[in-house]
Simulated assay, not measured.
Amino acid sequence: MEYIKVTSENIEKEHICCALSNTSDIQVASKKAWLSRQFKEGLVFLKSIERGKCFIEYIPAENAWNPILAEGYMYINCLWVAGSLKGHGYSSDLLNACIEDSKNKGKKGLCILSAAKKKPFLADPKFLKYKGFQVCDEATNGIQLWYLPFDKNVHLPRFKECAKNPHIDEKGYVLYYTDQCPFNARYVPMIEAIAKEKSIPFKAVHLQSKEQAQNVVTAVTTYALFFDGNFIANELLNDKKFLKLLEK
């Protein structure tokens, strides 16, 4: 497999892997605009030359849009290989490229979000363990911070206190999200409209800066849904999934 690094110079002509081929799609535009801003913060987006979900996205932890304390580490936003591209060792290829690049940049190690059991849109804990990652912190909702140190004597990354116990005082549905996930551009307005139509209390909090994201109440910032104060989902909900949730 050949890989290509998406940069500010080639982003307009490159697809971004998330099964979105229409470059005029609002989801593609949203993601590319977000990536373009993050390149200036040291973000790396490495993907296969094949169309499909096969990429890794990582950034210096100090610039990550998550409430973590991991100075000197590289934070992996997303490592995703899916569909017909699974099972060929591409995840290892991408992770190894990230490790090599991070070591060359003098980083202390890598960190990434996961959970004890595989959750949608989070890294697979079995894969992380196989690759030598360990859990270094855990929030009360089961979201874990994993790390891979490059040296035995480095400090452990950890969550900020604000994210240790994900709970808010507001009633109804409250969603925190960023533009890191391109699908949010389509589905967040969609479920907002459903909630309005059904007179269901719903508030969407669009995190638009790393400062906001680094001080929010949830470790997962790409998509974090609360109901009556409690964290209930980090999985992006389309209209059908949201309606199903409402039925419960």
Rank of each mutant, 00 (worst) to 15 (best):
Y3M: 10
V6T: 03
E9C: 07
N10V: 00
E12K: 11
A19Y: 03
D25G: 05
I26C: 08
W34L: 07
L35T: 04
R37N: 14
R37F: 06
R37Q: 15
Q38M: 13
E41T: 07
L43S: 12
E50F: 05
E50L: 08
R51F: 14
C54E: 06
C54V: 06
F55Q: 08
W65T: 09
W65R: 10
W65L: 04
I68Q: 06
M74L: 15
I76M: 06
L79D: 11
L79Y: 00
V81H: 02
A82P: 00
L85D: 04
L95T: 05
N96D: 15
C98S: 09
K105C: 10
K108R: 14
G109N: 03
I112E: 09
S114V: 11
K117N: 15
K117R: 12
K118V: 11
F121I: 03
P125R: 02
G132E: 10
T140F: 03
I143W: 01
W146M: 13
Y147R: 04
Y147N: 07
Y147H: 07
F150S: 08
N153F: 10
N153T: 13
V154L: 06
H155F: 10
P157I: 01
C162I: 15
I168A: 09
K171S: 10
V174S: 08
Y176D: 09
P182Y: 01
N184E: 11
P189V: 13
E192R: 11
A195C: 04
K196D: 15
F202N: 08
H206K: 06
Q208N: 13
S209I: 08
K210A: 06
A213S: 10
A213T: 07
V216K: 01
A219L: 07
A219S: 07
V220P: 01
T221G: 05
T222R: 08
A224G: 12
L236A: 05
K241L: 15
F242A: 13
L243F: 02
L245P: 05
